[in-house]
Design a binder for these strands. Structure first.
Length: 624
DNA sequence: GCCAACGTTGGC
DNA sequence: GCCAACGTTGGC
């Protein structure tokens, strides 16, 4: 079955249908059917289609999977007609040209002619959701209509080029997973033993897996993003011309990256460079490290037999990796499961709050299903902690679960805009502590569902709990914001001076190097108080000195749900402030820049604190 | 750097 | 069949 968009005359002019086969995972081979309305809206199910079209449209006879009208014999019609039911839309539908499904008496066999004839638009007066604006495709140059009111990816490309680009990206992902099977690299069966991946002495089962191959065995058909869009004429050219000055250069034996024929160079990149007058940095060498086998054995969900074998492997082959490098996680086949510890308060929560932004986005709460994220109050705390705080929130073994915060290319400062808005959605909602604050002895709860950072760190965690006077927009209850700051060690008082800050809590004082305290930045996102947690909070409000026990016991949902509601993958862009000693490890760099309080005139953080970011830019998504 | 958008997959 | 939501990526 074709996976491109095809006309669906059964729904009327302009409607498209697409069937997509799942290419991996437990449901590999299954197909999903999607529809696209004349205005570009995507519909994923019959329910959504019914909602979209409104109650005036009867879809009873519409075969969503096949995109045609069902044929009903007279007997079936007679039986079905009296008790005809129609799904009631769960929410109001925006004005759309509404195709009319014919009455049962008009239903005929599934012939395109009949469908086209019977499917007509009656609500022709309804205005389209948005007006298209003319434009030219960046790739092929043809004029095309673009919906300027919608935020859309690849909007500079026409429909065809955009589809090709998406298909290319999909192909590239597949090449990264399994390779093309044709290129010389895919034909290599033995590891070289000398590349950085091989030198890391990964377990064979893992090293030969999908993401951590020997460098000499990585599919050559993977087009690095930094070198081409994959869509333009240059990228599509497969053969060197053999005549240009580059082709005439001598080859570079032993190097994977060879000279690229002028005819095969990305035109889009060229235009991009000309526009911006600077060249983007080059991708650094991929680097991935497997977690220790002991942690592998605890992973859920992996179905790959090789991975399973690695899980069963006894811990007799310890990896001699640098400590922080061990924090880099190998992406697993079933990474979707890795976001849940299953035991923290958030994971145990069964109901959506119905009020956070992600809940409001859900169709069941009347949303448009664009964000498609789990309720903020249900996002795993362990996952957040481990990925944000590699070196402090877990022991050496747990550290292996962490993903490296990879950096993307930054735009020039002049090109960035200050973001103003009602919310701050930043991993840096985690702050370091300030001196002179009330001390709460932190303890390591190894068996707890919520692991606290060990003593000796300067990290402070925001968490739900007692009231907090964080001045954030929202309902009146915001004065009882579910924020609480935990801290451990205190720096020397002399290292700090007070300054203006937005976030003021009983323990996080002005001047703290917290992004939340940057008066320029948006303020801390204030989620509505969760009714279930309210009860626990009210019980514990008066006992601030027992905050640690509350946290360890999972009485409340820490505000790190805010951190993680961003989605785990975004932490590759993240840098965190950590004690300087945490930086004394290879593979990490630190920068004195990035102090978020600088723009607000706040004093710099103490010398013992530095900003941590990962030097390794590789991540699975960096190549497409 | 951040995040909205959305393709995709898991699971009921 | 449908929904939930994970993971990626283009836009800002």
């Amino acid at each position: 079955m074709a996976e491109e968009w095809l006309d669906c005359p059964a729904l009327g002019p302009g409607w498209k249908r697409r069937e997509v086969f799942r290419k991996s995972g437990a449901t590999c081979g299954r197909s999903d059917t999607y529809y696209q309305s004349p205005t570009g809206d995507r519909i994923r199910s019959k329910v959504e289609l019914t909602r979209y079209l409104g109650p005036a449209c009867d879809l009873t006879l519409f075969d969503f999977k096949r995109g045609v009208l069902r044929y009903l014999n007279p007997k079936a019609q007679a039986l079905a007609a009296p008790g005809r039911k129609r799904k009631k839309p769960a929410r109001p539908v925006k004005a759309q040209p509404c195709p009319v499904v014919p009455d049962r008496a008009e239903a005929t066999k599934e012939t395109p002619r009949d469908e086209t004839k019977t499917m007509t638009h009656t609500d022709t007066d309804a205005a389209p959701a948005s007006l298209p604006a003319p434009g030219c495709c960046e790739n092929c140059g043809i004029r095309f209509s673009v919906d300027v009111t919608r935020r859309q990816r690849l909007k500079t490309l026409c429909k065809d080029c955009r589809a090709r680009r998406i298909a290319f990206n999909r192909e590239q992902r597949m090449f990264k997973r399994v390779g093309c099977g044709e290129c010389t690299a895919c034909q290599v069966t033995e590891d070289c033993g000398t590349c950085s991946t091989c030198l890391l002495q990964l377990p064979h089962e893992v090293a030969s897996g999908l993401f951590c191959k020997c460098e000499q065995r990585r599919c050559l058909r993977i087009v690095e993003k930094s070198r081409g869009c994959g869509v333009c004429r240059g990228c599509q050219t497969r053969e060197d011309c053999g005549r240009c000055q580059v082709c005439l250069r001598p080859p570079r034996p032993g190097l994977r990256r060879q000279w690229r024929c002028v005819q095969r160079r990305c035109l889009r990149h060229l235009a991009h460079r000309l526009r911006r007058h600077h060249q983007r940095g080059q991708r650094r060498a991929p680097l991935a490290v497997a977690p220790p086998a002991g942690k592998l054995a605890r992973r859920k969900g992996g179905r790959d037999p090789k991975i399973a074998a690695a899980r069963r492997r006894p811990q007799t082959q310890p990896l001699s990796l640098p400590p922080l490098l061990q924090a880099i996680e190998l992406p697993y086949t079933n990474r979707r499961q890795n976001r849940k510890c299953g035991s923290c308060t958030a994971c145990l929560r069964r109901t959506d709050c119905g009020r956070c932004d992600f809940c409001c986005d859900k169709p069941k709460f009347g949303g448009s299903n664009q964000k498609r994220q789990k309720c903020r109050w249900r996002q795993c705390l362990q996952f957040a902690m481990k990925r944000l705080l590699p070196s402090v929130c877990a022991g050496p073994e747990d550290g292996a679960e962490l993903l490296p915060p990879c950096r993307r290319h930054r735009k020039p400062v002049s090109a960035r805009r200050p973001r103003l808005g009602p919310t701050l959605k930043s991993p840096l909602a985690m702050s370091i502590s300030c001196p002179g604050q009330a001390q709460a002895p932190m303890k390591q709860e190894a068996g707890s569902s919520f692991v606290l950072p060990p003593p000796g760190t300067d990290l402070v965690f925001l968490r739900e709990g007692a009231g907090s006077p964080v001045p954030v927009p929202g309902p009146a209850s915001s004065t009882e914001a579910p924020l609480q700051v935990k801290q451990e060690k205190v720096d020397a008082q002399d290292d700090w001076t007070s300054g203006p800050a937005v976030l003021i809590s009983p323990v996080l004082r002005p001047g703290c190097p917290s992004k939340t305290g940057d008066p320029i930045l948006p303020r801390v996102k204030q989620e509505p108080r969760d009714p279930e947690e309210d009860r626990a909070v009210s019980r514990n409000d008066s006992a601030s000195d027992s905050a640690v026990e509350e946290e360890a016991g999972g009485a409340g949902t820490p505000v790190i749900t805010e951190i993680f509601s961003l989605g785990g993958s975004r932490f590759r862009d993240t840098a965190v402030w950590l004690p300087r000693q945490e930086m004394e490890a290879p593979g990490w760099s630190w920068s004195p820049r990035g102090w978020p309080g600088a723009r607000g005139g706040l004093p710099p953080p103490p010398a013992s604190m530095i900003r941590l970011s990962c030097r390794n830019s590789w991540c699975p998504s960096s190549q497409t």
